[in-house]
């Protein structure tokens, strides 16, 4: 069969692609460019889409805005809090689930449940669990002699509360990906190691971890990027506030505030692009480190 591109085929393909391209072009590709341009609009009438003035002042504004740096710092703390804990826990659970155990499917189902639920609704449930006086968490911690913690009203505790919620919510997804990765490891490695008398910890350290590194790499990228975009949890957990004394103000919350609270589209676009660049750089760093460290 001769299968080379022709004008006829291209026209036919365009017909098939038209609906998707119309939507993606309008709502995915155009806004990437438009957002970049908007970040330089310093005087803008969005109703009439008229730009009166362009300049760099949106960027200089956010880089001098302590609130922007606070939101960057909070987001970093959130990322550093969530990603390692979530990866270690989910890897551990995935390894346990990968053994010859009964009810494996049942456990897998249970761990994945939080992932399919509405972030907003579960955040409201957790708001109740974090309740200082009558919350379930403080009640349990009380068994260990911990005095009631003001999870949602103490600026020191708002971020830990957010991290707990995010780890709980995202664990199931990571477990599924880790399980899929584990099933790709040839069982014969384990058998050979067993014959050589390797302990289960040695097998984990010397077979599972290196052979799973591409999966771990993938999960860390996805987790970092998703954690950088945290918003719904913050909004719902603290009732439409970015935490007590802005202690849970994240980058997306900052963008949301500038855009929807202050209607300053230029500054919001500049902040959105700053977020994009951070995510982009992280992806590149991860790709670079990943290429060198990952054993395929």
């Amino acid at each position: 069969m001769n299968d080379t591109p022709t004008i006829g085929k291209t026209l036919k393909a365009l017909l098939y692609l038209a609906p998707a391209l119309l939507i993606i072009g309008t709502f995915n590709i155009y806004p990437i460019i438009k957002s970049f341009l908007m970040s330089f609009y310093t005087d803008y009438d969005y109703f009439k889409d008229i730009v009166n003035e362009r300049g760099l002042s949106n960027y200089s504004y956010i880089f001098q805005d302590p609130e922007f740096w606070l939101s960057m710092k909070n987001t970093m703390i959130f990322v550093i809090g969530v990603v390692p804990i979530s990866i270690i826990l989910s890897l551990g659970i995935a390894v346990l689930l990968n053994q010859k155990i009964k009810f494996r499917g049942f456990f897998r189902t249970v761990y994945f449940i939080p992932f399919v639920t509405s972030v907003v609704a579960v955040s409201i449930v957790w708001r109740w669990i974090f309740h200082t006086q009558y919350g379930l968490l403080n009640h349990f911690l009380g068994f260990f002699g911990v005095s009631p913690i003001k999870w949602l009203s103490d600026p020191q505790m708002a971020m830990p509360a957010l991290i707990i919620l995010a780890v709980w919510k995202g664990l199931g997804y990571n477990i599924i990906i880790f399980l899929a990765g584990l099933q790709n490891i040839n069982q014969q490695y384990y058998l050979a190691a067993k014959i050589d008398g390797a302990s289960s910890w040695q097998r984990f350290k010397n077979i599972t971890v290196p052979l799973l590194s591409s999966t771990t790499f993938f999960i860390s990228i996805i987790s970092i990027i998703n954690s950088f975009k945290v918003f719904d949890e913050v909004f719902a957990l603290f009732g439409g506030q970015p935490g007590p004394a802005n202690s849970a103000q994240t980058v997306v919350y900052y963008i949301f505030n500038k855009f929807y609270g202050e209607w300053d589209f230029g500054v919001a676009s500049a902040a959105a692009y700053a977020l994009f660049i951070v995510i982009f750089i992280l992806t590149l760093v991860q790709l670079y480190v990943g290429k060198r460290k990952v054993n395929y």
């Binding site: 995915n28 990027i225 918003f231 963008i255 959105a272």
Partner: peptide, 24 residues
Amino acid sequence: AVLLGTMMVPGEVLLIPNFVTLAN
């Protein structure tokens, strides 16, 4: 490849222009 590349852009970047488009 272009389509896959655009998947890297966080949705938050699209929010504001899309709002303007829909408003128009």
